[in-house]
């Protein structure tokens, strides 16, 4: 198990993203300051068009910010050249997508092995690590199944196993429960929570689903490309509540954002 370290995994300062089309200018992100800490499940919430996916893309080094600085695990990636960004993604970040984005022609084990192959792990090592990762998400028995033969929840768990290939300290998940029923979604969110809390990974998850709020350690609200509110997640709030309620002289305290 990874040693839990609440150090900053991602630090963003003044991130802006401007899309230009002819004379038209669209500010998708505006001066976003953000710190994502290891060992926490951070939820990004906001209405459609609020910049969640743009922010996730920038944090994942897929998209470059127009302005601002971004540090991943202490390395200033804003200063890196475009061709150096794949290395950051390979070494530091795992992605989980709403639509799973599994390779339909590959089995579950091969999907995970492919992510290892991208990182230069091949042959027996890749097979062994792939099996271990599938076992970690509870799908060891589905190693030889193709995505078409898996349920939505199982697909997303395979996608998480794939995101864990190379043991990245950061996981970025884009609405991973959106396409799932609540039972499957709950399994997935619990898995992500466990990966954050027990393995010390920094997990950032974009979501619209209010049912997952209770699993988050921090909730960041975006509107019109700006962070408008940040609050402790329900679990922390509840913990705080219990702590405060234990103090003498305190009455009822309502945890924000619940």
């Amino acid at each position: 198990m990874r040693e839990i370290n609440r150090a900053s995994a991602i630090r963003a300062e003044g991130l802006s993203k401007i899309y230009r089309e002819g004379a038209t200018e669209l500010r998708a992100l505006q001066e976003v300051d953000l710190e994502v800490r290891a060992g926490e499940l951070t939820l990004l919430m906001g209405p459609s068009g609020s910049g969640k996916t743009t922010l996730l893309s920038i944090l994942g080094c897929i998209l470059r910010a127009s302005e601002g600085n971004l540090e991943i695990l202490g390395e200033d990636v804003s200063a890196l050249r475009e061709k150096e960004l794949p290395r950051i993604r390979r070494e530091a970040i795992g992605f989980v997508f709403q639509g799973f984005n599994l390779f339909p022609a590959l089995t579950a084990a091969e999907n995970v092995a492919l992510a290892l192959d991208v990182r230069g792990v091949r042959g027996g090592d890749a097979r062994q690590q792939g099996e271990e990762l599938l076992a970690e998400v509870g799908l060891a028995e589905k190693a030889r199944s193709f995505p078409a033969d898996l349920s939505g929840g199982q697909k997303q768990r395979v996608a998480i196993a794939r995101a864990l290939a190379g043991n990245p300290p950061i996981l970025l998940a884009d609405e991973p429960t959106a396409a799932l029923d609540w039972t499957s979604g709950r399994t997935v969110i619990e898995l992500l929570q466990r990966l954050a809390r027990e393995q010390g990974r920094a997990v950032v998850m974009v979501t619209h689903d209010p049912r997952v709020l209770s699993f988050g350690d921090r909730i960041i609200h975006l509107e019109d490309g700006r962070i408008v509110r940040e609050e402790a997640g329900a679990s922390k709030a509840i913990a705080s509540l219990a702590f405060l309620e234990g103090l003498p002289g305190q009455g009822s305290i309502q945890a924000v954002g619940l």
Partner: peptide
Amino acid sequence: IREYGTLKAMGATN
């Protein structure tokens, strides 16, 4: 194309 995009997100080089 979507699969290649996913590969790229995973850190695959050009």
